[in-house]
Simulated assay, not measured.
Amino acid sequence: MNDFPFGLVGFDLDGTLVDSVADLAAAVNHALAEIGRPPLTIEQVRPMIGGGSRVMLQQALTATGGDERLDDLLPEMLAFYAAHIVDHTRPFPGVLEALDALRKLGITLAVVTNKRERFSLALLDALGLTDRFSCIIGGDTPGLVAMKPDRAPIDLLLRKCGNSGPAAFVGDSIYDVDAARAAGVPVALFAPDGGGVPGANAVFADYRDLLPTLTRMAKAQPTI
Score class of each variant (00 low, 15 high):
71 D>Y: 05
70 L>G: 02
62 T>R: 15
14 D>Q: 01
55 V>W: 08
75 P>T: 02
56 M>G: 08
58 Q>M: 12
75 P>H: 09
76 E>Y: 10
41 T>W: 14
10 G>E: 03
6 F>Y: 15
74 L>M: 05
75 P>I: 02
11 F>P: 00
15 G>Q: 08
19 D>G: 05
33 A>G: 10
70 L>E: 06
44 Q>W: 02
17 L>K: 04
73 L>S: 12
38 P>Q: 12
67 D>E: 15
33 A>H: 09
17 L>E: 07
15 G>Y: 12
50 G>V: 03
45 V>G: 05
9 V>L: 08
29 N>P: 10
31 A>L: 02
22 A>V: 07
65 G>V: 06
4 F>W: 03
73 L>F: 14
68 E>N: 11
62 T>E: 15
60 A>W: 04
35 I>C: 14
64 T>N: 13
7 G>T: 05
52 G>D: 10
20 S>R: 00
23 D>L: 05
31 A>F: 06
40 L>Y: 11
65 G>Y: 08
17 L>N: 07
33 A>L: 01
16 T>V: 03
11 F>C: 06
52 G>A: 11
32 L>D: 10
24 L>N: 10
35 I>W: 09
6 F>Q: 02
61 L>I: 05
16 T>K: 08
39 P>G: 06
35 I>A: 13
71 D>K: 11
56 M>Q: 12
58 Q>R: 15
73 L>W: 13
39 P>F: 01
40 L>Q: 02
74 L>F: 09
66 G>P: 11
69 R>A: 15
69 R>W: 08
51 G>K: 05
56 M>I: 04
15 G>T: 03
47 P>A: 12
66 G>R: 11
52 G>Y: 14
46 R>C: 11
21 V>R: 02
13 L>I: 01
67 D>L: 07
46 R>F: 15
43 E>H: 05
40 L>M: 09
70 L>H: 00
5 P>Y: 15
65 G>N: 10
43 E>W: 07
66 G>A: 14
8 L>K: 06
55 V>D: 14
33 A>D: 07
6 F>E: 03
58 Q>I: 01
19 D>Q: 08
58 Q>T: 11
57 L>W: 05
72 D>E: 15
5 P>M: 08
25 A>P: 06
69 R>L: 10
60 A>F: 06
53 S>N: 12
24 L>H: 10
22 A>S: 09
26 A>G: 14
57 L>G: 08
51 G>M: 01
47 P>E: 12
58 Q>E: 15
35 I>M: 14
8 L>N: 05
37 R>W: 11
49 I>Q: 07
8 L>Y: 10
24 L>I: 13
38 P>A: 14
50 G>E: 01
35 I>P: 04
24 L>V: 01
29 N>S: 01
53 S>K: 00
14 D>G: 03
54 R>M: 09
29 N>K: 06
49 I>S: 10
46 R>S: 13
47 P>D: 15
12 D>W: 04
53 S>E: 15
26 A>H: 07
28 V>W: 13
52 G>V: 00
23 D>A: 04
7 G>Y: 10
